[in-house]
Nucleic acid binder design. Structure first.
Lengths: 106, 106
DNA sequence: TTGACATGATACCATTTAGTATCATACTTA
DNA sequence: TAAGTATGATACTAAATGGTATCATGTCAA
């Protein structure tokens, strides 16, 4: 059993963590900056970041006394791989995503 | 916040439940049949099925004294929709999925 | 109709989880 | 160097989670 798959799915199971992932998709942030976006303590945000890091969804770079948290999109790969098992059930949906990509490339 | 999205992600967060989803993708089953595939009691499997049902990932049809559990692939839609937010990060991976689909269609 | 079978439901337990409060550490800067 | 700032780490709590055991209900079949 793939521990990466498990850790990634587990990381995405919490709504706060999914929000963090979306925020970091737009802009990298320190823990303090992220904490400003939520109604919880810095310690709680830090815990979520640890779970996201375990899931391979973010990376952390030390910069002075700050820690820059960045999205690692390839961490979503195990999730997509697992979902791809169900190709035969959602060809239509995948095709619409494919078309969106084609449009964007023009 | 989309409760369906939350329930679907939560349902997929457990490895036993992901296994159940894959088993049901191949063949619909009763609770008893599913229990044979796992090293846990029928009651535990039933709990997982309830979580999967809450997540919209399976449906249950009563047939006599049996309950037929079926995969509901469209329950994965909220998960895919959420992931599609990150299109710009995994064009390559999506393209490989797209290619797999194209190959299959031939 | 009666026994066997498939499931539903409830109570209970141990562990994990999501959060807080608090203190320690390390870096910046006046 | 000393104060302020950003983060790390630990201990603690309440609630959710994953599991069991047990009993109730409903259906099938002889």
């Amino acid at each position: 059993m793939h521990i990466q798959t498990q850790n990634a799915f587990r990381a995405l199971a919490d709504p706060t963590r999914r929000d963090i992932v979306q925020i970091l998709a737009a802009q990298e942030m320190t823990i303090g900056q992220l904490t400003d976006r939520f109604d919880m303590t810095r310690a709680a945000v830090k815990k979520h970041l640890t779970v996201l890091s375990d899931g391979g969804l973010i990376s952390v770079e030390a910069r002075g006394r700050e820690r820059i948290n960045r999205l690692e999109p390839q961490g979503l790969a195990p999730v997509l791989d697992w979902l791809s098992y169900f190709d035969q059930f959602w060809d239509d949906r995948l095709n619409s995503l494919k078309e969106a990509i084609e449009r964007k490339k023009k």
